[in-house]
Design a protein around this nucleic acid. Structure first.
Length: 290
DNA sequence: GTTACGACCTGCGAGC
DNA sequence: TGCTCGCAGGTCGTAA
């Protein structure tokens, strides 16, 4: 499941392969892959043909190709999206959704997505602060902890205004971006916070601690190429990351806690799962457990 | 304005 | 062996 480290691995790979190259053709193999694009499939293809890719940027889990006409191709990997650089004559993958070829006839770009939660859309770039520009649909996404202008004091302040469970708050991409289910559980374990704790009942220093752990765990994951549980996440060369071996709680139900030895528990959370150590991360005293 | 929850989607494994 | 069902989960829209 691609979260910030996995998307950044893909972005770095793409930056090497496509920056400065001119798109020769674009093919849409599944309409759902461009459902966020405001124009038609023909419009998507026409507007890409002949455009040069200047660079590849990212905020949180959103990534975009900056084109030479001041538009951007916003790309979200969803749950199962992959961007692969393939030989021009490579056979199409079973779940190939969008394909670009380039005028230099070197490797083509394949957007592959089994569950089609991801997608691509061409959008204008909008100027924001610090002389930066982001695609229109990314304006509402908060800065992620790896960005140079990430304002941690402001993020903690926003967190403390919410009465929601802290896990819901750190998964809210409008508050802090890039964190998904895996790194949320890992950060909360490192900070010794129970995921059900209302955010406004956690001290500012503890929330700073949590954000620092989130930054730390995602930086470590990035250094190891991201977290791969199966073939659903790979880099642009089709290679898996290795951080799943370092996870302390996520996916480790009934295994001993690396800190205290108590068995890791799995709890339902909004239709999905939360993993935690009940000893290291005790429930809030008078809080209600969902 | 804030919060909670369902819908979207496909492959895989468990259970029958 | 083959079928059904639950699970995985990021984002968005809607309801409360």
């Amino acid at each position: 499941m691609p979260e910030l480290p996995e998307v950044e691995v893909v972005r770095r790979g793409l930056a090497k392969w496509v920056s400065g190259r001119t798109i020769d053709s674009a093919t849409v193999h599944h309409p759902r892959a461009i459902r966020q694009h405001e124009g038609t499939k023909k419009d998507f293809v026409t507007r890409l043909t002949g455009r040069k890719v200047k660079s590849v940027s990212r905020r949180g889990k959103f990534m975009w190709f900056v084109l030479d006409d001041d538009n951007a191709v916003v790309t979200h990997l969803g749950m199962s999206g992959q961007v692969l650089m393939q030989a021009p004559d490579a056979a199409p993958e079973k779940h190939l959704r969008v394909r670009w070829t380039f005028r230099d006839d070197k490797r083509a770009m394949h957007f592959v997505d089994q569950r089609t939660f991801g997608g691509m859309a061409i959008e204008p770039l909008v100027s924001i602060d610090y002389d930066e520009a982001v695609p229109r649909s990314v304006v509402h996404i908060a800065r992620d902890p790896l960005e140079p202008h990430f304002d941690q004091d402001e993020v903690v302040s926003r967190m403390r205004k919410s009465s929601s469970a802290i896990k819901s708050v750190i998964l809210n991409q409008n508050v802090i971006s890039g964190i998904g289910n895996i790194y949320a559980d890992e950060s909360l374990w490192r900070a010794k916070i129970n995921w059900t704790t209302p955010a406004n009942r956690i001290s500012a220093s503890k929330l700073h601690d949590l954000v620092n752990h989130a930054r730390e765990v995602m930086t470590q994951a990035l250094a190891q190429g991201g977290t791969s549980f199966d073939s659903l996440y790979v880099n642009v060369n089709g290679e898996s990351g290795y951080f799943s071996r370092e996870l302390d709680v996520y996916g480790r139900e009934d295994e001993p806690c690396n800190r205290c030895g108590r068995l890791i528990a799995r709890q339902p959370f909004s239709g999905r799962s939360s993993f935690l150590c009940a000893r290291c991360q005790p429930r809030p005293r008078s809080g209600k457990t969902p």
